[in-house]
Design a protein around this nucleic acid. Structure first.
Lengths: 222, 222, 222, 222
DNA sequence: AATGAATGAGCTTTCATTCAT
DNA sequence: AATGAATGAAAGCTCATTCAT
């Protein structure tokens, strides 16, 4: 038997769930629109049409357009963090964990290409506060890489490199495929892009005595 | 004593000079604003105000807003190409030429900070044709680096790396300071950013037998 | 009792009715202004003010200014066709039907004065496609007159005149009151204008042996 | 030997001549523009370009755009009056003089088509005062026809028709070819248009006893 | 909760007009 | 007398936002 509070809680929960699903519906519609027609085409009317609701309804879930755009970006970055955490867990060797994390970033970028470019294009239009949040999320998404790097250095596998620098370079290298695909795709596939950047990065910091252990990752640079 | 033709030529020259200086004035004003905010947030009225002229005047020098944005971007990229060519010439050693070219890119980026971000943020908003021109200019600006890289490989100083990949990575690393300064400046100066990336890049491709020759460039990674 | 479908249909119908009344409101406001001044001198703001709505609203009902002007003209011409068809039906005698049709045109012109001038003044400013539609509508509105004329000729009442020429002359004569009222009203009323042109037109083509039958229409020319 | 006043007069005359030729140059340029690209295209810049002078210069000869447009229209109407007076003089018979005047109007209309339409299209945009002048010029151009009509009536050749009505009808019939050529040219040439309207008009007012004398003008209606 | 008609500020662009040269 | 660079008001149009239903 339900107490009155429990009933209220249940109702509360139901409402929250509804709100969340509406927000999700709208965020997805906006993301779809961005991917299909670019950020130019994101008008409130277009988002409403794409989501199959009315313009007015959007304002029940987002205070204004700014907030919606902000939410879309944060949503994408969140997706990033989540999807990158997985492939890293299985790997015991810290160097191989670096490679796995980088590969993870790259595969998410490849999949969310258009959305990933968004952060670079729209960040200027955000409120300072929102911009900070976006930056925080980006830094956060580099965490797994940074942890693995620190560990690898500590284990004496890598030279004494600044982990924040090294990790962020790898993160941006992953992003770079989205921004500069037009160039790199002229002479290499995304797979080659990932492999060769893995090799170059590790080659720059792997201590000579351990290079042989990671010949498979270094490829021709071994 | 002036002939009548000489007088006409002089008048022509004066007008051309005036036109050029006006274009420059407008390009600079627009670049300042576009660097600060995206082109979506910059109105022609804003540009006019920033340049201290009337809206109407802009249209005497640029057909429409699109053309103005395009011209600003091309102008920045041109500046890039020009300013980067110099520091490279003096260096005979191809590896040191790579370092010099990278340092050159980095110093131009540092100086034109806001403008340098433009190409990344606005290129998606350009007309396809204009986009191609921008891409061509960007690729062109990587030429000195690519030439030095090829030479260094040919001289047996570097491992067998893809020069297009290696050179473009360096180019984008230089650009990256403009995009991610907010992060890197938390723990390093621009000078350190340049030095450490020079070291990392060379470290990844320098053949072991030549590392000693470039200890000054490799720093702690030597 | 209403079924759910019936309720939806009712809502649909209500919306359609609202849309129609809005369109009408805007068309009337625009027609009033366009009749007074040319479309070049009439701004969308003017139309909005005249209709008592906002500029933005006009664009919900008409894609752009061109479309609005086009719609106003077509609306007037449609009104013409509709209002002219009536007075003709009752008349059995084809000659008297010509006179009735002409009188009909003239009375509509008199009533829609300003609007009637529109087609003459704006047709050159329309898109080619729209211009064709306007021409078609104008030709269509001459149909009743042309039919009556053909019949009268076939009945041997009129000389062998080109019906397309004769009918169109009458149509434009009716329109002409709107264009040249400033002149004709100096020395005659609209009623006299109609009577005397009826007389002149019939006088030019009535076979001598039937003139006496239509002395009432020929007046002093009998 | 010149007196001082004579010298001043001569200078005055020279200046007046220069002013006139400049005005002419500009009016012709504007008329050419109208004929080629429609009234939409008449901007001060376009007129200046067409005339091969600067925009500023136009304002030395016309106070503003309004005045220029007005002058163009008046110029065309003046041309009308002048060119119509000639063919009438040779004809002694007043009925044939009517036909000659009508033919004269028609041929001028045919030649100045685009310019003739102008009066109908732009008159709404003129100042009230200018509009009056245009009307006066139009009435004036009907003078020869009216005189001939009066004479023909007085000579007992025509029925007792209102000469102002009859003459103006003919004048507008001439104009009508410019406005409705798109229709009439479907089934007749301009020559046939003139001949058949001459026949119709005369047929409506010629006294029966004189029809035979003008069988050549009446054609099939004889 | 949901709709979408209505608003109006703000954008890009044009062009008549001025005025220093 | 002649130029044309410069101005800025005003146009057409868009779209974030509101609110009666």
């Amino acid at each position: 038997m339900q107490t009155s509070e429990a009933r209220i809680d249940a109702a509360e929960a139901a409402r929250t769930a509804l709100v969340d699903s509406r927000r999700r519906q709208l965020l997805n519609a906006a993301a779809r629109l961005l991917g299909r027609a670019g950020s130019q085409s994101v008008s409130m009317q277009n988002v409403a049409d794409e989501a199959g609701v009315s313009v007015g309804l959007i304002y029940r879930y987002f205070g204004n357009k700014q907030e919606l755009v902000q939410a879309v970006i944060e949503d994408v970055l969140h997706e990033f963090s989540v999807r990158v955490a997985e492939p890293v867990q299985d790997e015991a060797d810290p160097v191989r964990r670096i490679a796995a994390a980088f590969a993870g970033y790259c595969s998410v970028v490849q999949e969310l290409r258009d959305a990933a470019v968004l952060a670079y294009q729209e960040s200027k239009t955000l409120e300072p506060e929102g911009r900070e949040t976006v930056k925080d999320l980006e830094v956060e998404s580099a965490e797994p890489l940074m942890a693995a790097t620190r560990e690898a250095i500590h284990a004496g596998l890598l030279r004494d490199v600044n982990p924040r620098l090294f990790a962020y370079d790898l993160l941006t290298t992953a992003h770079l495929w989205a921004l500069k695909r037009w160039y790199f795709s002229r002479f290499m596939t995304h797979g080659e892009y990932v492999a060769q950047h893995t090799a170059l990065s590790l080659s720059s910091v792997l201590r000579p005595e351990h290079r042989a252990d990671y010949a498979d990752l270094l490829g021709p640079l071994a």
